[in-house]
Design a protein around this nucleic acid. Sequence first.
DNA 1: GTCTATAGGCCGATAGAC
DNA 2: GTCTATCGGCCTATAGAC
Lengths: 194, 194
Amino acid sequence: MARTTGSRAEITGPLIRDKARRLFARQGYAAVSMRQIAAEVGVQAGTLYAYIPDKQALLADLLESHMQDLLAAWSDDPQAGPLERLERFVRFHIAFSLDSPDAVFLSYMELRNLTPENFARIADLRGRYESALESILRDGVEARVMRIEDPKLTTLALIAMLTGVTNWYREGGRLDRTRIAQIYWGLARGAVGA
Amino acid sequence: MARTTGSRAEITGPLIRDKARRLFARQGYAAVSMRQIAAEVGVQAGTLYAYIPDKQALLADLLESHMQDLLAAWSDDPQAGPLERLERFVRFHIAFSLDSPDAVFLSYMELRNLTPENFARIADLRGRYESALESILRDGVEARVMRIEDPKLTTLALIAMLTGVTNWYREGGRLDRTRIAQIYWGLARGAVGA
DNA sequence: GTCTATAGGCCGATAGAC
DNA sequence: GTCTATCGGCCTATAGAC
């Protein structure tokens, strides 16, 4: 079966998502036009609509699949002690954030540009991720290896602190990834009173 | 001297800034149109241009005056001990953030939509604020009342953590402001190893 | 699968009346 | 100081050719 001239469907689909993710993260969803995305991909604007229903669906898809990836990649170890589990969470979150800085940045920056239906679905996924950390903190308090005034607020505070890494991290900067993770783990451990 | 019919210059100017700040914070700079701002203010779109040169200048003005306010409001006490100074900084930052959540949110969300010239000016102000915290941390390490692996990274981490309060705080929520400040101070104190 | 062309609309900003 | 009217441009999304 002959291929249509110029057909590159196998790469165009993922490429649209990659380029859109990058542009949305750098300029913001509303500031990026479909023409810009198309130009980065190397197709005409109309072609994008063979892959996505509309711009909103593209954003929702990027955010939802990021949250799904994040949840799928995280696995708690209920056998381990709370401090060990927290350390794993911190290192996991930092590593994931540094591997996918655009997706992470986007996912906590562009929730407000989702339609209510899309927002609800993605906020629910985010809530599950937060719960994963919160349960570690509650177990740590119960086991008396952590001192935490308010586990819910501490969860949000720790995630905000860790996610902040995407605001300043640049490849080849002063600190390497292992060192950064080490420093953040020290901060988190201290914050929970361990 | 008779007033021009409908003239309300004394309130229109500040009102434009107030409404723009709110809209930019909620929807993002690029997603808000001048017509939307004008509608909120209660004037026609053209009228806005009697007060501001263009949309970009409006954003830059909001961000710059916020940073100026922040810097003017913060006063360190070099006589006090590092821990006392850190506590004051944490409580100040939380109080300021809860008093002006839109401005704070905007100022760390919309830097990317500034022109390079505006960005440089405002990033410099932000840098001064970060330096205020960093010098406290360095003094704390020197006085051996804090244990910090990397004062620069810790500065950014703490500010990200504290500023995160604008992401979830709602008036009349579960925790009151004093309680929130108390909890964050506990987290910060632990994070710096005190 | 991708293109060209375009519809229909909203955008930022300006000109000039009152 | 504010209005109305409008310019020129860019936007999302679609239609139809190849």
